[in-house]
Design a protein around this nucleic acid. Structure first.
Lengths: 218, 218
DNA sequence: GTCTATAATACGATAGAC
DNA sequence: GTCTATCGTATTATAGAC
């Protein structure tokens, strides 16, 4: 059996317009959705082309190969995330405020790019994190680790393992989106991706995380 | 490009032994690994057969179709998890102890079956949770929700959203395993899947979660 | 119950016209 | 820069021998 038929009738955008950058972006966007769902080997170039409103030949014209396209797709969030983190200037804030802001930004980013967390999950499990290793994720992790270490040093956070706690915090933020398609079935009464529900998730996550790290003898 | 060559030289178990149950289990085990990595449409029946030490014809003999095998693979953890939760008799413990035990058991289960969390993630994103919906996951979620509600009623947990907090707790427990193949590259000095590291993850997770829900005015 | 052989289709990638 | 047509291979699924 094939894959689920997703009748997304792409209403034939007027092609033959010859705008290289626009075409490239359309392919990248369609590829992001396809790769996040099916991973590198599972994604279908034909599906990406259809999603972008072009032919498969365009993919090879711009990205040489399926794997070349995959790499380009992975690059975007790694770079973007790093820029976002840099611009936050987290080291100017006291640890609690920095953590508060980071969690809010992380969830907002996930909500704005719901495919991207899943994309990296596919990279992990299908590709053993080959391209994750090459990206600047170590640096991105470091932002959170530094906040935790600073909080411990200043006494506002309890003694904890910064690395493991970083993973725990990311888990709190991301499961909501990563497992959305399963979770939605447990609460058909809720619109989990509505701004209101995401705001509730954000606030609950912030409280949970801050309570989880705070030094109660403070 | 194909998929990563995984030279698992299956040292030719003596087939032609005609043990139906054993063969069935071998296929299920190999399928669990393959489906968790590639999802329903991405998995290759040939790879499953090779991993089980049989031919693809056996898969169709026992499970009728690729999707039939997929369903059978998903069934096992859903049933097993429910049994584990039932036998814990969590309602006989005070909320904090119940939560402590549940988290430890959940992580131990993940560690013992490292493919299964990922398997359900693939089901979510590649299959829109079609078979998650049919399983008894609502009931499994309920165990955790009940503990949280009981803790709030008794005053040992702070006021929180039981549904969202359930998701947050699951996120803390699972990211470690779900994203392992990426995470391992950020800490090549650690053996993340060693019993020692898993024990540290468990203890840190328990502390983080209990601190996250505890009522400090207690 | 298990295997070999093969039919039918799907897919990645390219050549060449426009 | 974009499309159509197509080559070669990979993949699901089945028929039939043992």
């Amino acid at each position: 059996m094939g894959r689920s038929t997703q009748s997304k009738l792409s209403l034939k955008k007027p092609r033959q317009v010859r705008d290289a950058e626009a075409t490239k972006k359309q392919i990248l966007d369609a590829a992001e959705a396809e790769f996040s769902r099916y991973g590198l080997s599972g994604a279908r170039t034909e599906a990406i082309a259809k999603g972008a409103g072009v032919t498969t030949a365009m993919i090879y014209y711009y990205f040489q190969s399926k794997e070349g396209l995959y790499q380009a797709v992975l690059q975007r969030p790694a770079v973007e995330m790093h820029e976002v983190l840099q611009q936050l200037n987290l080291d100017r804030l006291p640890p609690e405020e920095a953590l508060n802001l980071l969690v809010k930004e992380a969830i907002a980013y996930e909500a704005a790019h719901p495919h991207r967390g899943i994309l990296w999950f596919q990279e992990a499990n299908q590709n053993q994190g080959k391209y994750f290793k090459q990206g600047n994720w170590q640096e991105n992790f470091a932002y959170l680790i530094e906040i935790l270490e600073r909080g411990m040093a200043e006494g506002c956070f309890r003694q904890l393992d910064p690395f493991l706690t970083t993973l725990h915090i990311i888990g709190v933020c991301n499961l909501y989106f990563n497992a959305y398609e399963n979770i939605k079935h447990t609460r058909p009464d809720l619109q989990l991706l509505s701004p209101e529900m995401i705001e509730q998730h954000t606030q609950a996550a912030v409280k949970f995380i801050l309570a989880g790290v705070r030094n109660i003898g403070d």
